[in-house]
Design a protein around this nucleic acid. Sequence first.
RNA 1: GGUCGGGUAGCUCAGCUGGAUAGAGCAACAGCCUUCUAAGCUGUGGGUCAUGGGUUCGAAUCCCAUCUCGAUCACCA
Length: 598
Amino acid sequence: MTLENTLTQSIRKVIENLYGQSIDEKLVQLQATRKEFEGDLTLVVFPFLKISKKNPELTAQEIGDALQKEESLVSKFNVIKGFLNLSISKNHWIDTLNVIVADDQYGTVEVTEQSPLYMVEYSSPNTNKPLHLGHIRNNLLGFSLCQILKANGYKVVKTNIVNDRGIHICKSMLAWKLFGNGETPESSGKKGDHLVGDYYVRFDKEYKVQVKELMEKKGLSEEEAKKQAPLLLEAQTMLKKWEDGDPEVVALWEKMNSWVYAGFDQTYKRLGVSFDKIYYESQTYLDGKAKVMEGLEKGAFYRREDGSVWADLTQNGLDEKLLLRTDGTSVYMTQDIGTAQQRFKEYNIDKMIYVVGNEQNYHFQVLSIVLDRLGFSWGKDLVHFSYGMVELPEGKMKSREGTVVDADDLMDEMVSTARETSDELGKLEGCTEEEIANIARICGLGALKYFMLKVDPRKNMMFNPKESIDFNGNTGPFIHYTHARIRSLLRKAAEAGFQLPSSLPVDMEVSEKESNLIQNLANFPSVVRQAGAEYSPALVANYAYELVKEYNQFYHDFSILKEEDEQKKAFRLLLSQSVAKVIKTAMGLLGIEVPERM
RNA sequence: GGUCGGGUAGCUCAGCUGGAUAGAGCAACAGCCUUCUAAGCUGUGGGUCAUGGGUUCGAAUCCCAUCUCGAUCACCA
């Protein structure tokens, strides 16, 4: 029973006694008291005026009087306009802190056998180029969401669908075959995904030359030239050969994909994300085709004269959607159907969540209907965790214009900036090189992750390289710093031989700042719950920031190790320790590590 | 044009299940280290919450209209 719940019930009781009417729980609006007023929680009394038939001040006064008699949690109160500010008794706060101290898993719910299973798909890269800033947002959101769902007591299967087949990968393959001279990651020292990406760019470059030539020499329109360029035709031939199982093409495909996977693994590992089960489009698209044919027979879809297969979604207020091309090859949707089927065969999934950018909102609207029509009961309840695009100060990222921010480069830059900052401030003197490197890694990546996760996932976000690298203010390192400070305090207390008690006497004195901090800590579980319900890591990030800001003020205003009253000292240390614990858990939900010192 | 999502301080963002004087950070300016980590703390300036109407005791928040930005509506992925 939380403080709010207890109070709500008492307030309902009091109001019924006073005015002879029972009231709905929803009318009891409790909110944290604003800083400028005395009190911990505030009851808004406007909703009760109709029943009390008195003015706001008088009503608040009456409720306050009665509540103070009725509920021992309320130590005193004051009334300002229609707001009843309640002060909660000191021993409630100590009680609360004692509970937090005793709970190692504070804020999280245990996963049990009966927990529902959530499958979360995220990352979903194409195997023709390295990961960039957009993928970073996807990966961080996906991983964090999984952490948050687990903390809410759900079983989670993290999954990835790798788009490993199709014309895009044939383009890289063809360019490598024509211009690569047998270059390998080993021979060039390039990371595999970057190497393959370079050939994808090379294809585009050569292709453009051909298109231009066709337009100039043969007088073709741009549209025609783009269709007829020999390189594109050759890539299409290659795709056909791949589908027919041509050994040479398949061997090249396997070789180049393996390079890419080695590169991706490195990037994922560094980013700190992982998967429980990886699916490959090359292994699911045939199932998708079969499923579409099945739907066609059942009359869920229809075939046009040219042989292509479509879903008519006009009765759902949408358009018609292609599922199989005239030549029988599959499209994006087909593959998603096949993947969905395999997943639901292998796992007992209660909820499927797709972490995919908002540019695909329409796609998932359609997918949901199509799966439903195919008889997948879970189809209509699938969740498209739709996040906004990452924009740069100069506009959208465009790979063709070279404005893409590469994931590996970005991580390098963040870590080296963290390293420089540490060196400048001279805080890590006496640490080994290994320790320094690790702290720089934690801070650099933490800065990047926090920067991307603190904004509402649904919204487009601006990525300004200069700001993202800032380590002051509302940033990951700000939170790191507070954690490191607290750990330092606790180390010093231990070195001095100070024994931390496991709990505190409830009757001790607590200042307003301190009880505010406990109140903040007490809110953590509901923040985790809300973040899970709304699929929003940003709520956790913003909570962590508020908590840390509050703690830094406390740290500044109160002495801790130098406090002479042993009981107060113990209290402040336990309070600090609890703040550190919650910071660590909250950051963990964001996929961010915290340093012991910095 | 249809559908969907945005518009809050110079910039980046909170606040949006209606509640007190709309909050942070950055940037600018002014303070605080012989004292537990100054990657910190304190203060100053900065707002027609896109616009207009409506509902309400009360609207940044809910409803309608308008303006504006973006995404999407491909035999692309």
